[in-house]
Design a protein around this nucleic acid. Structure first.
Length: 549
RNA sequence: GGCCCCGUGGUCAAGAGGUUAAGACAUCGCCCUUUCACGGCGGAGACAUGGGUUCGAUUCCCGUCGGGGUCACCA
């Protein structure tokens, strides 16, 4: 009896690997095209780090005329979560980064290299596992989890390197006959890789991002097929990325230390290994320590958070790109209106250490992004957000025509207003422009320098009866406020007042502040002229008369 | 603990054997301005540390310290 008999006994129905090699041929792509992927497990919400990886992957694929695909790594049913795949698909959609190939819904996929869900690829993994067993490069292991655990404890107490390797790998040296007998006796087993490595030898790896990294060879006989017949990550990675013809594996740098194993697996299977790019995760400052953004502790770790907050996807992508290539910022300044796809992203310029997540910076970028949107887009986007997260804002925005006028205040100019950094800011920014809200607002008026009620009344009364004219252009409008100031004994020009402040009780700015507060209940607003213009005569008069009468 | 990676202002970061060590965000001040926002100008603020190598090191090498990752029938 030989390895072949053993392999046939374990995987009697597996196809020869030639079948799959033929079914999934080399891709016909231009020279230098990068085939890469996002390969998450459906174990919960999509992490910002996953989005970051996808952005980089998608960018590289697009840049080189390659392929970006989505593969779902659902080989651990225990950790699987309901709607996991749908969440992943939708998240990519939300950020306008749909894959060229792979899963497009919970059950549908596109592309010729599928299935793209690992649980559907069981036969394929088993075929390759069988192939390894036939060659004596893998073997059934009958150790129970308890035994393995016991071995580990022994190693730990003896202070030797833990793991299933060398003399500790009990089942590695079972004869074919012994193994076959155990199987026939019904003993449970899993399949382990028979590592050809030696710990005292080094291997060289050149990572696209990390550069040259040398490791000891892998000598662990890792599990490749679990008790449930599904592969472990390592084995699935080798088989899938070979069969899907991945050329560049972009993944989080927690995988860096598995590279020796993965390279060994590729070699043993006779595959050409892909290139690897291990990216540093996005970190968070936690009491002075850096740690990865955590799904449990940090709401901003979930990509859904940004949608909930109303931070546009464009802004999140710009922020991420900025972390990845800091030259992006300069490029953006030089090319304020270009699509980010035109940015010449350089993978090898990525930082090797993890960046701390900076919400303040993100919001600044977001503010810039939004400031470039026209009123129409701001309207559409904030309404879309409000429909899911803010009914009050949704109501406010129900008058489309008026709302667009409101949102257009100081917008669309060379130096547009920057005051909205997320859609959840919109309500505060505009609510006073709506009579419903304004007249139901119970807040006190907070006047500034001129706070005497009678004086305010006097100013407003005179303004509304003598100086306010809706038809005035901005210059006339303001010169009339100056006239008003003068008539009431205030300085007509702020500059004059500043020269001799004792000469007047205040200046034209103080007068306009009174009007501003009366009209908006705010001390700080965009341009008052535009505001009054958008509000219209009736509303302005009503608001002023409220205090003037 | 073993192995691996990393260490430039508060944050993201550029950078090169010789630089006044960029820029952005944040912060502070001033200017502009009827408020705010925008914009302009300016300030403060950094090469973790100790040894080498060198005429010269923040840059190269080694150690130390600090941070991170990894050591599963999880990915």
């Amino acid at each position: 009896m030989d390895y072949k008999d053993l392999a046939d006994l374990i995987f009697p129905d597996a196809k020869p690997i030639a079948y799959y090699e033929e079914k999934y041929p080399e891709r016909n792509l231009p020279e230098g095209a990068i085939v890469t992927r996002f390969a998450p497990s459906p174990t919960g919400f999509v992490h910002i780090g996953g989005l970051y990886q996808s952005l980089i992957a998608k960018t590289m694929a697009e840049k080189t005329g390659g392929v970006f695909f989505l593969r779902v790594e659902d080989t651990d049913q225990k950790r699987e979560v309901e709607n996991g795949v749908t969440d992943i698909v939708n998240s990519l959609k939300d950020f306008d980064m749909p894959p060229d190939e792979g899963m497009i819904s919970d059950s549908e996929e596109i592309g010729n290299y599928g299935p793209y869900k690992q649980s559907l690829r069981k036969d394929i993994y088993q075929a390759y596992a069988k192939f390894l067993i036939e060659q004596g490069k893998a073997y059934p292991c009958f150790c129970t989890p308890e035994e393995v655990d016991h071995i580990r404890k022994k190693q730990e107490s003896a202070k030797i390197r833990p793991g299933y390797y060398g003399v500790w790998a009990k089942c590695r040296n079972l004869t074919v006959e012994e193994a076959i007998e155990k199987i026939k006796n019904g003993e449970k087993y899993i399949v382990r890789f028979k590592s050809p490595g030696r710990e005292d030898r080094k291997i060289k790896h050149k990572d696209v991002i990390k550069g040259n990294v040398d490791f000891p060879e892998n000598d662990q006989d890792i599990v490749i097929i679990k008790a449930d017949g599904l592969p472990t990550y390592h084995f699935a990675h080798a088989v899938d990325d070979h069969l899907m013809r991945t050329t560049l594996v972009i993944r989080s740098d927690e995988w860096l230390s598995s590279v020796p194993l993965h390279l060994q697996l590729f070699a043993s299977l006779g595959f050409r290994p892909p290139k690897y790019a291990h990216i540093s995760p996005i970190m968070k400052n936690d009491n002075g320590n850096k740690r990865k953004l955590s799904k449990r502790k940090d709401p901003e770790a979930a990509v859904s958070y940004y949608r909930e907050q109303g931070i546009p996807a464009d802004a999140v992508k710009e922020y991420l790109l900025n972390i990845a290539n800091s030259s992006f910022e300069n490029w953006r300044r030089a090319n304020p209106d270009k699509d980010i796809k035109e940015f010449d992203f350089q993978m090898n310029k990525m930082s090797v250490s993890g960046a701390l997540f900076d919400m303040v910076k993100l919001l600044d970028i977001s503010k810039n992004v939004i400031s470039k949107y026209d009123a129409n887009k701001v309207y559409t986007e904030s309404l879309k957000w409000a429909e899911s997260y803010d009914n009050e804002l949704k109501d406010i925005l129900s008058n489309k025509e008026y709302s667009i006028k409101v949102l257009n205040i100081e917008r669309g100019k060379a130096k547009p207003r920057r005051d909205i950094s997320k859609w959840s800011d919109v309500k505060y920014c505009i609510e006073y422009m709506y009579d419903d809200k304004f007249f139901n607002n119970r807040d006190e008026y907070e006047f500034d320098k001129i706070s005497d009620k009678e004086e305010i009344k006097k100013i407003l009364k005179l303004y509304i009866s003598k100086y306010y004219n809706e038809a005035d252009d901005q210059t006339t409008w303001f010169s009339k406020i100056k006239d008003l100031a003068e008539e009431l004994g205030y300085a007509r020009e702020v500059k004059e007042y500043k020269k001799e402040p004792e000469k007047w009780p205040g200046h034209v700015g103080d007068i306009s502040t009174v009007i501003r507060v009366a009209v908006t209940k705010r001390r700080n607003t965009p341009d008052l002229y535009e505001i009054m213009h958008v509000l219209g005569k009736d509303s302005v008069e009503k608001r002023i008369n409220l205090l003037a009468e």
